[in-house]
């Protein structure tokens, strides 16, 4: 199988890749905003299939600290939260988390027209899909709800321990 280099130019164009390397800390407000964003991007399909049953918040929190996730990605997510709130404030005079669901969707529609906003939504959805479709050994995709939803049969052998934690 031919492997390609990662698509890196998109984030490079956003101009967030020039700062020096540093470690990240995340406050509760940032994580709450990201968690709410996950719900807005992936609304409940049923009681058994939603961002809570796939443990999307905990997984994202873990990923935000993971050594194999690049600082560039982490930095982009951190800035994305700031920019999301700035967009919400510009449109409605409030932070994203303070808005009603319908207004939050308006904010998302607005940022989706920008290059950073499109990349931000893509990034958050990428990690959400990992929680939805990764092996339940990681405490995600509870009862294989994600796999059942898309009629997916995992490869064997499945992992017997969470290898990348």
């Amino acid at each position: 199988m031919r492997l390609k280099k990662r698509s890196f130019l998109k984030l490079a164009l956003l101009g967030v890749g020039v700062a020096s390397l540093y470690s990240f800390s995340w406050n509760k407000t940032e994580v709450d905003t990201l968690s709410l964003l996950q719900e807005d991007l992936f609304p409940d399909l049923s009681d058994s299939l939603n961002v809570r049953t796939i443990n999307a918040r905990s997984y994202l929190t873990y990923i935000l600290h993971h050594r194999k996730v690049s600082n560039k990605n982490k930095r982009f997510i951190k800035k994305g939260v700031v920019w999301l709130d700035e967009e919400a404030d510009m449109l409605f005079g409030k932070s994203y988390s303070s808005l009603l669901s319908s207004s939050r969707q308006k904010v998302l529609e607005s940022i989706a027209k920008t290059e950073w906003g499109e990349s931000f939504i893509e990034t958050i959805l990428t990690y959400l899909f990992e929680a939805l479709l990764g092996d339940p050994i990681y405490g995600i995709n509870r009862n294989k709800v994600g796999w059942k939803w898309v009629h997916y049969t995992p490869g064997l052998p499945r992992p017997w321990s969470p290898a990348f934690l």
Binding site: H66, K68, E130, L133, G134, D135, I137, Y138, P154, G155, L156, P157, R158, P159, W160, P162, A163, F164
Partner: peptide
């Protein structure tokens, strides 16, 4: 030792 763990092998490249 090997499994088909997509997150570990393909996403986190262990």
């Amino acid at each position: 030792n090997f499994s088909k763990d997509e997150l570990a092998v393909s996403k986190r490249e262990i």
